[in-house]
Each structure stands twice: as structure tokens, then as C-alpha cells.
């Protein structure tokens, strides 16, 4: 009877230890697979396919070109409008002098 009880106790102990080991290794396996899948999702930009990489230089050139162009066009428009008004003023002044 005592032997049977001892055997059952050892069996239970082994069972508990076994479940623990299986559980731990399952958790580790799950963590490892998650990490692998997360790492698989991230691809450094320089390792991307050439068509997927977005070059910075054209964006930079476009931004600066637009800024310079907008400033030049605006200053030119002021100069043109001012020249037109001053020309008209000069014409009017000469007309009034002729009178």
C-alpha cells in the first residue's frame, strides 16, 4: 500500500514537472516566433527594393526650388506692378503739363 502511494506521488511529481517544462518551452517557442515575425516585418530602408526606396534629394530640390521661385515671382510681380503705375503717373504728369 505504502509502495503504491509512493509510486502515485512520484508519478504526480513527474507529471507536474513535465507540465512545467512543456509550458515553459511552449512559452519560449511562442516568444521566439513572435520576435522572429516582428523582426521579419522590419526591413532597414537601405535593404529595400530600389523601387520602394524614396530618395530624399528630389524632395529637397523641389522644396528649395519652389521657395526660390515663389520669392522671385512675387518680387518680380511687385516690380512689374510698380513700374506700370509709375509709368502711368509719368504719362499723366506730362499730359497735365501739356495742358
Amino acid at each position: 500500500m505504502k509502495v503504491t502511494v509512493r509510486r502515485v506521488a512520484v508519478l504526480c511529481l513527474l507529471l507536474i514537472l513535465g507540465i512545467g517544462v512543456v509550458d515553459t518551452s511552449a512559452e519560449e517557442f511562442l516568444m521566439q516566433s513572435m520576435q522572429t515575425s516582428q523582426q521579419d516585418e522590419f526591413v532597414p530602408i537601405d535593404e529595400l527594393e530600389a523601387e520602394d526606396q524614396l530618395p530624399a534629394a528630389p524632395l529637397l530640390v523641389a522644396a528649395y526650388s519652389f521657395a526660390w521661385l515663389a520669392m522671385f515671382v512675387y518680387l518680380w510681380s511687385i516690380w512689374r506692378r510698380l513700374a506700370r503705375v509709375e509709368r502711368e503717373l509719368t504719362q499723366l504728369a506730362s499730359r497735365t503739363t501739356d495742358r
Binding site: L75, I78, L82, E86, E88, L92, A93
Partner: peptide
């Protein structure tokens, strides 16, 4: 600086327009 420069030129344009309007009214 560009703001100040453009501002001065643009205000001068408004002044010249007002002057032109005044001359037309006088005529």
C-alpha cells in the same frame, strides 16, 4: 529681411496707386 524688403516695395506700390487715383480725380 526679405519680408521687410517686399513690405517696403509693396507699401510703395499702394502709395503710388493712391497717388494715381488722386491725379485721375483731379483731372
Amino acid at each position: 529681411l526679405l519680408y521687410a524688403l517686399a513690405m517696403m516695395a509693396r507699401v510703395r506700390l499702394e502709395e503710388q496707386r493712391a497717388e494715381l487715383e488722386r491725379v485721375y480725380r483731379e483731372l
